[in-house]
Simulated scan of single mutants.
Amino acid sequence: MPEGKIIKALSGFYYVLDGEEVFQCRGRGVFRKNKVTPLVGDYVVFQAENKTDGTVTEIKPRKNELIRPQISNVDQAILVFSAVEPDFSPALLDRFLVLIEDNEIEPIIVVTKLDLVTPENRTKLTQYINDYRKLGYTVLETSSVTTGGIEELVPYLEGKTSVFAGQSGVGKSSLLNAINPELALKTDDISSHLGRGKHTTRHVELIHIGSGLVADTPGFSSLEFMEMEPERLSYCFPEMHEHGEDCKFRACLHDKEPKCAVKEAVGSGEIPEYRYEHYMQFLEEIRDRKPRY
């Protein structure tokens, strides 16, 4: 039977790409029975008598899986954050980074709307960008209006499956339109009443850009660490994992333990203080979620 990759899931149908042809399929009933949901990005086996009447019969093993947005087999995550409107949020960025790091997906940070930055907020933004670059992250600065920085982003997309993710209203769809105007993805402005972005992407869909596939996903503004153990969290902060090797206790959570190398690095400025504050906030959330005996 033929094999392909799900590039869109909508209204109970799965659109499977096989070569250059797309087949509209339903999922087998056994998936529902076993509580398995085919995801965009899944490699699948299917059968189809024609392009509109197919059935997904098998889902191949996934190398990774995200819940929000629902997508699998991602090579890298393009984390899109606006400089302003809404303001750049390192706390929210760190939430995304923890989720991405936990799934062993390569993150690329893209700061958008640079055309709206004023001298007053440029200094702080530059400091954040420099901090994340020093931590080893790739950070690109772009503007969908001036198209500045777009040419730097495009090579990262070649030959890979990338998920575009970020808070609503940061300009994910505008950025994709700037890369390829033929996409004509729907965009919208920040809601003046709610003060946040309006959701313009309603479903997950993989789109061809060059030799790569890119997912434009519904925006969301919160992430929960549903399955993460406290001991795993520091692995998702690369600088803390590195300094943690020098902690006195192997299972150090960098909280109240003595002779903690991470806290010493925060005190000396090697680790940005706000990163440690976010780490402690996330650690407390995980602890509050776990039952205490």
Rank of each mutant, 00 (worst) to 15 (best):
K248D: 10
E270R: 15
M1P: 12
I286V: 15
N121G: 00
A165D: 00
S168R: 15
I71A: 02
E21W: 02
P272Q: 10
H208G: 12
G148V: 05
V111D: 01
K33M: 12
H254G: 09
Y235K: 09
I100A: 04
I209Y: 00
R95F: 06
L233V: 08
P238M: 12
I271G: 02
V204F: 13
P90I: 08
L66N: 03
V45I: 10
Q281R: 15
T123H: 06
R250L: 07
V98D: 01
P86A: 05
E65K: 13
D115G: 03
V204N: 06
C247L: 12
E141L: 00
I78T: 03
G197P: 08
K60A: 03
P181F: 12
I105L: 08
A251N: 15
E101A: 04
I78A: 07
C260E: 04
V56I: 15
E273C: 09
Q167D: 01
T118L: 05
A165S: 08
A83M: 00
E205R: 06
E104N: 06
Q127K: 14
E152F: 03
L223R: 01
Y132G: 05
L66G: 02
F81M: 15
Y235F: 15
Q70F: 04
P291W: 01
D42N: 12
L157C: 10
H208S: 14
K186W: 03
L97I: 11
D42A: 10
T142E: 13
A261R: 10
V266H: 04
G269Q: 02
D216I: 14
S268M: 05
I67Y: 07
V163W: 09
E151L: 13
V139R: 08
D18M: 08
L176T: 07
S191A: 15
Q47H: 11
D255F: 14
S144L: 00
L66Y: 06
C236T: 10
L253D: 10
R275A: 05
P107R: 01
I207H: 04
V170Q: 04
I179D: 02
L140C: 02
P86H: 08
G169T: 03
H193A: 11
L99H: 02
I6N: 06
M1R: 02
K248M: 15
A165W: 01
T217K: 09
E284P: 08
